[in-house]
Amino acid sequence: MKKSKLSMRARYYIEGYSFISLWLIGFLLFMAIPLGRSLYYSFHKLQVSQHGLIASFVGGDHYRAAFTTDVNFLPLLKDTMVSMLTQVPLILIFSLFCAILLNRKLVGKTFFRGIFFLPVIIASGAILSKLMDQGAANLPIFYNENLYNKLNAFIPGDLLETLLQYAESLTLVMWDSGVQILIFLAGLQTISVTLYEAAKCDGATAWESFWKITFPMIMPMMLVNTLFSIVSSFTKADNQMMTHILNVVFKTNDFGYGSAMGWIYFVIIFLILGLVFLLFRKSLSTTEGRK
């Protein structure tokens, strides 16, 4: 009796695994093994010969080279950091704002939601980035009207320049926030109406109920969105760091060094994500308690 039960369970496991197996094979072949490989390559110098690749161990040389000899690496790293730091908060604020607007009762809701998601569809293409090079992404008003000189009379130059940079990246920010808007919308819809009603009965204004109800309740989504925005800003195709690594790998054929840079980059992303988790931990635990 016991034996047959065991074999039942074994069959159940086998069935389960046979469903996963295809995915697992693909995952191992094209993600896990390449990942291990690239870590291995990053410690080796690779040379192409008739017998294929010859790897000779160089230790941490590539990692050292990235920080000491490569003139492009550190400035590019700084640039990607800065653009991430400026864009992610803007994306979060903008998408939360849009999500709140789109969550209200209005005619043509689906239509508007569709429009706000549209850039995700179009702008992810490499073709559009070509068009953006030709100026489609910058609002033409900023340079056409000679805005810089006009505003310079009121605002000091340094401040104005950063302000204009913000304004110029605004279109890009808006196009990047389609997915985040959807995630926020989903979050807003799970907040129960009774909370707002209770707050209203107690005489809370819309402003107060936003900060006391909406904001804390949306915190988990905020975390998801922050993570998502950071990852997507780091791995975007037009990211300069990515282009640099691709160039090193495919133009100069330096696999080892390219892998090392890829891993440095990856570790940095991971550290930042960890930091975000830490920052959100406290606010998340308070929301958990409220449920």
């Binding site: 094209f30 390449p34 990942l35 990852v231």
Partner: peptide
């Protein structure tokens, strides 16, 4: 989900 596809490109290409 968090891996950048970048680290994988080289070995994938070799494979």
């Amino acid at each position: 989900l968090m891996f950048s596809p970048l680290v994988l490109q080289i070995p994938q290409y070799l494979l």
